[in-house]
Amino acid sequence: MNYNNLQDSGVKLLCTGFKDINCKLEILSLKNNCITEGGCHVLAAALNSNPSNLTELDLSENKLGNPGMKIILTLFENVQCRLEKLNLKNNCITEGGCHVLAAALKSNTSNLTELDLSENKQGDSGVTEISSLLRNSQILQILRLSDCSISEEGYKALSSALRSNPSHLIELDLTGNDPGESGVKQLSDLLQDPNYQLKTLRFLGPAADEGCQYVTGIVGKNPLLLRELNLRGHKLGDTGVWLLIQMQ
């Protein structure tokens, strides 16, 4: 039901079907439907009345804010909740919302394996809250935090949490943030840990990542860790120059 402008009133109508005992809905996607806190009340009540089949919920690009997210998180208080994937991308969630989220997911036997909080403005403080969740989670495998105003302090908190509990997270997306030199080094050191199981780490855009790999192949070092880069004597060609531009 993505991109349908349902708004809270439309969600209320839709939810009448979710309460039916015969409803076997497993995946619900309501991306970009102008849903607010009011719609969350109705949706959470409906899903809590019949929670055992839903495994994936996408509420990205709505207007939940911290209050709306808090209501949705009541789903995890239900022992019958089987939710494995939750997408809250671009929902005006801030540091306070991250505190509630971390507390909700740590205080129960959550089945959540995939969480997307991209394009929210939780900043370093919010990411520190999420890091506390990573220290204890035995389930979460995929975490997306792209464009979340995270700087070196947030990267340090994430790296510390992942180093203390390295065996579960397999994908981490941090594109669109500003790690700084120390943040890049934190992640680089983390990847050298033989106990770490991370298979996919994104902290640059696709074009910049390709450029970084290109330069690393030439000089043998990650250019993001260098203060000075000298490529004199190398035949870069137009393609090589273009890749360098993408790293800016």
Rank of each mutant, 00 (worst) to 15 (best):
M1T: 08
M1P: 02
M1N: 07
D8E: 09
V11I: 15
L13G: 01
L13F: 06
D20L: 14
I21S: 15
N22F: 09
L25W: 03
L30D: 04
T36M: 00
G38C: 02
G38K: 05
G39M: 00
G39H: 00
V42I: 14
V42K: 00
L43I: 07
N48F: 03
N50Y: 07
L54P: 02
T55L: 07
E56Q: 14
L57A: 10
D58R: 08
N66K: 08
G68Q: 01
I71W: 04
I72N: 00
T74L: 04
E77A: 08
E77Y: 09
E84P: 03
N87E: 12
N87W: 10
L88A: 06
N91C: 12
I93Y: 03
S107Y: 10
E114C: 13
E114T: 14
E119H: 14
E119N: 15
N120Y: 08
G123Y: 05
D124Q: 07
D124I: 02
S125K: 11
T128F: 08
E129C: 14
E129H: 15
E129D: 12
I130D: 00
I130H: 01
S131F: 06
S132D: 12
N136Y: 12
L145A: 05
S146V: 01
S149P: 02
E152C: 09
E153Q: 13
G154E: 05
K156H: 13
A161H: 01
R163Q: 12
P166E: 05
I170M: 09
D173I: 08
N177K: 10
S182G: 04
G183W: 02
V184N: 10
D189A: 04
L198I: 14
K199D: 04
L201C: 02
R202L: 08
L204I: 06
G205T: 13
D209M: 12
D209Q: 15
I218W: 07
V219R: 09
L226S: 04
G233F: 14
L243H: 15
